[in-house]
Amino acid sequence: MSNVIQLDALTKDYLTDAGAVPVLKGVSLAVNQGEFVAIMGPSGSGKSTLMNILGCLDIPSGGRYLLNDTDIGTLAESELARLRGQVIGFVFQGFNLLPRMSLGNNVALPLVYQHIGKPERLTRATDMLEKVGLGHLVNSLPTRISGGQQQRVAIARALVTRPSLILADEPTGNLDSHTGREIMELFQRINREQSITIVLVTHDMTVARYAQRLVYLKDGLLAYDGPMSDFHGVEA
């Protein structure tokens, strides 16, 4: 099984008035095709920084990140943008739907940037909405549906480009516990049925337990990487 993500001694420093502040201090990690991985860690552990690098929204200070065998450190910004659009689907805590655009057009929007014609865009968007149980709402507006339904639309939008990797940042953070369970069960089904690699960041162990594998960061270092079932906490 091939690696979708390969990190080798990854570091990230941020420049401040006081000098360079190390955030990631040498993280090595491999994620295979079809895995479902949760990233956790206390505030300041580096998990958000790691997620930005995985999403090609930031680049490492040192080490190497291979995404589908492509070294992102060698790419220009235009190439990074193209890679993001083709390989990665993003799901955010805040849904990020355009309120005056129909659900179908919201889902189809990433395909505009891939220069895919309107008929195919709408066909694929409708198909994705069907897969998340909202095909009957293709012409509705985001303001007329619930938060849980909006997150399902966001997931459909992430899937419409047929990515090999879904990155989800606190995807249940704005949802009640019952709706959050429904969304995590949807992620599990997508992972199981479509073999799409899913990496999510969460602070909630209840959410993380839907993943098969846990990556736990502490002080910019990898404190645990293994099966969720074997995780019993990290020493202080």
Rank of each mutant, 00 (worst) to 15 (best):
I145E: 09
A108E: 03
V27Y: 07
R152D: 10
L137I: 05
E79I: 05
G135H: 07
V87I: 07
Q212W: 11
G89S: 12
G220Q: 06
G73Y: 02
S146V: 03
D17H: 09
G233K: 11
S28Q: 13
H115E: 15
E182Y: 10
L67A: 09
D230E: 15
D71K: 02
R157Q: 13
K47Q: 10
R64G: 10
I59D: 01
S177H: 09
L165W: 01
G148E: 00
L111V: 12
D127L: 12
G89W: 00
L15C: 05
N191T: 11
E193G: 06
G148K: 01
L103Y: 09
G220L: 04
L66F: 04
D13K: 12
L137P: 02
L222V: 06
G62M: 03
D225H: 13
T202F: 11
S195V: 09
L75M: 03
D127E: 15
G180I: 14
V207W: 06
K218Y: 10
L134K: 01
H232C: 07
L221A: 15
V153T: 14
L24I: 09
S61R: 01
Q188T: 15
A211E: 05
E193M: 08
M1H: 13
L83I: 00
A156E: 04
I72D: 00
V112S: 12
S78F: 07
I190C: 00
L98W: 03
P227Q: 14
A156N: 07
L122V: 03
A211S: 14
T49C: 06
N52F: 07
L134G: 01
A30N: 12
L159S: 08
P163T: 01
E193I: 04
F95C: 06
F36Q: 08
S229C: 09
P110Q: 02
P227C: 08
E185A: 15
F36I: 09
P22R: 05
N191W: 03
L175H: 05
I145R: 07
V160K: 02
E77C: 00
L24H: 09
P227G: 06
A223Y: 04
V37S: 12
V138G: 10
V153Y: 14
V234T: 04
S28C: 11
Q151I: 14
T126G: 15
